[in-house]
Design a protein around this nucleic acid. Structure first.
Length: 268
DNA sequence: ATGCCGGGTGGAACCCGA
């Protein structure tokens, strides 16, 4: 089963690029971030025509996540729960569903807060969100089932994941507290699918493996990228992992997102 | 990278992203 994550940066602006990518690469599941649409505004029938079931968790203007799947999606839940029983996250950044192929796989799609500027309330929100994520991952791991927790994490895990790490030193994507919170989640027992397939490298260049290039300052042309879109696997999912790749080429297409798809293949 | 680009809303100019 081929499962992809893709921050599309607006469904209205990306409907052609997204459809081209789906037709050319045929993922079984695509977890989307930044749909920037309310649920009623998402072109569901268009993607039904391309062979995908659609579940969305949107809001007006910003954020928003969705799942496209060739197989039916079951037990869909929306919003990252508060472990203390408080209010659910008011921003549309989390969606879960189960897809049943040869195995049942729990899919979690996330759009983790950016967190800039540092310090400030947005950074506090990012770190608080990651605490909630830590709790949710603990619960998922206790189930001992295959689960994929993927999306735009807005975290540069290591030096090797940025072409120019020095320029990110004080950024919320690379601050020590952000990276520590990410490590704390991974160290619960998750596997970074891309790094499990591709060996670690010295700090780039050349050439690096990235999933985001800014629209500005010729970042794509200069390959000034960062790897912030991740697929993390529970042990039961990691045992099924056979491949992980980045569809970098789509950053050079017409009207691209600033992110590109990252995908895995599971023997399931 | 200081938002230089790009998408959103709303109907101009401003918010937001990483």
């Amino acid at each position: 089963m081929k499962i992809a994550t893709f921050n599309i940066n607006g469904i209205k602006a990306r409907i052609t690029a997204l459809s081209d990518w789906l037709r050319e690469t045929s993922p079984d599941v695509a977890l989307l971030q930044e749909i920037k649409s309310v649920d009623d505004g998402f072109p569901v029938s268009h993607f039904n025509d391309l062979g995908y079931n659609v579940e969305t968790h949107g809001q007006k203007g910003f954020n928003g996540v969705a799942i496209l799947s060739r197989l039916p999606l079951e037990d869909v839940t929306r919003g990252l729960p508060d472990p203390d029983g408080g209010e659910p996250d008011e921003q549309a950044r989390w969606i879960e569903a189960t897809v049943v192929g040869e195995r049942a796989i729990r899919l979690c799609g996330l759009y983790l807060p950016n967190g800039n500027p540092v310090p400030g309330p947005k950074y506090d929100y990012k770190l608080a969100w990651m605490k909630r994520l830590h709790h949710r991952v603990q619960t998922l791991l206790a189930l001992e089932d295959p689960a994929v927790i993927c999306g735009d994490y807005n975290i540069i895990p290591q030096l090797e994941d940025a072409a120019r790490p020095d320029s990110w030193r004080e950024d919320a994507l690379f601050r020590p507290e952000s990276r520590a919170a990410f490590r704390k989640v991974v160290n619960l027992g998750l596997t970074d699918a891309f790094r499990a397939i591709h060996p670690h490298m010295p700090p780039a260049p050349p050439p690096g493996h990235y999933s985001f290039w800014d629209y500005q300052a010729g970042a794509w042309t200069r390959n000034n990228g960062i790897r912030i879109d991740h697929l993390l696997l529970t042990p039961q999912a990691a045992d099924l992992l056979t491949d992980a790749q980045i569809d970098s080429e789509f950053r050079g297409r017409d009207k691209p997102s600033d992110h590109v798809p990252v995908w895995i293949n599971l023997a399931a």
